[in-house]
């Protein structure tokens, strides 16, 4: 069975052709199916952003191949152009990229470039606005009148309006307050469930990834070092913490207690789970 996206033995270097070539991504294999919701986590410089830029052909790997919907995306110019609509990427701090006079026009920019009729464009904008909880009143405002959290949602809506089969969001919640974060995460989850589009979230924040994703991919030093179901990720807590990922504080506590000889699992990441496990151990005096 073919996957919707297949990356085969991908390597990419920003210093192509120079003597001491450094690879940002090295020998990566990755598959993705429609409807999945995947978190990619790794610290700065691990290769996360390079990896997602390969997904829709923004970067051409030095070696390896990228198949989207059964086609090699680099086979010809037309395929390479069209893949941009199938795989929508929303980069970090996208609110700085808003440029139109009104929120409506900004969200319409993507679908317009897909040569849709103006009715279709309007439909797209309205449904994307709905997914991102953007009111009709807001659609007529200038993007510059909005708060940071609202701008962020407008930028995300702009990518959703292209109806991509895969929506990739790079640090979607960075810089938002806790309530804004929770709201955006909820909207993304609903979008995934309603449309069946695959969603990839790139993040530094383990708690965010855990609250949203079913599958977690860990990137370290240009390679995928873990690709597993959410429930399984924290059984690798020691490894995660050794490569400098910020595991949740309760996970840190359990690792520390375990190191002190207390027999505890380390795949714990919420305060509720953690309290549940420790309660019987404490009450037994």
């Amino acid at each position: 069975m073919n996957h919707f996206v297949e990356l085969k033995d991908i390597s990419y270097s920003y210093t192509q052709g120079s003597k001491n070539r450094v690879f940002a991504v090295k020998d990566v294999n990755f598959n993705l199916n429609k409807g999945e919701i995947v978190g990619i986590i790794g610290h700065t410089g691990s290769g996360k952003s390079t990896l997602i830029s390969v997904f829709n052909g923004l970067l051409k790997p030095a070696s390896g191949s990228v198949f989207v919907d059964g086609q090699d995306i680099f086979q010809d110019k037309k395929t390479l152009y069209n893949v941009k609509f199938k795989v929508g990427i929303c980069f970090q701090y996208p609110e700085y990229q808003l440029f139109e006079e009104t929120v409506f026009k900004d969200i319409a920019f993507g679908p317009k470039n897909m040569k849709l009729t103006s009715d279709e464009v309007k439909q797209r904008v309205i449904s994307a606005a709905r997914y991102c909880d953007i009111s009709e009143e807001m659609l007529n405002k200038s993007p510059f009148e909005l708060s940071g959290g609202e701008k962020r949602r407008v930028a995300v809506a702009g990518v959703m309006a292209m109806n991509p089969d895969i929506l990739i969001l790079d640090e979607p919640a960075a810089g938002l307050d806790p309530a804004g974060r929770t709201k955006l995460i909820g909207l993304i989850r609903d979008y995934n469930r309603t449309t069946g589009s695959a969603v990839i979230i790139v993040s530094h924040n383990m708690e965010e990834v855990c609250s949203l994703c079913e599958r977690v991919v860990v990137v370290n030093k240009s390679k995928i070092v873990l690709d597993s179901a959410l429930d399984d990720v924290f059984s690798h807590s020691e490894m995660l913490s050794s490569i400098g990922l910020d595991v949740p504080d309760v996970t840190k506590l359990f690792l520390k207690l375990k190191a002190a000889g207390v027999d505890l699992p380390t795949d714990v990441y919420t305060p509720e789970q953690a309290a549940e496990i420790l309660k019987p151990l404490i009450n037994r005096r």
């Binding site: 506590l253 002190a260 509720e272 309290a275 420790l278």
Partner: peptide
């Protein structure tokens, strides 16, 4: 997170860091 966890365990509601929780536990 740690404050919430310690409150759930009945260890008081003013524990702030992993190290404090560790010392209590």
């Amino acid at each position: 997170q740690i404050t919430k966890f310690c409150a759930l365990l009945g260890l008081g509601n003013s524990v702030l860091t992993v190290d404090q929780a560790y010392d209590l536990l």
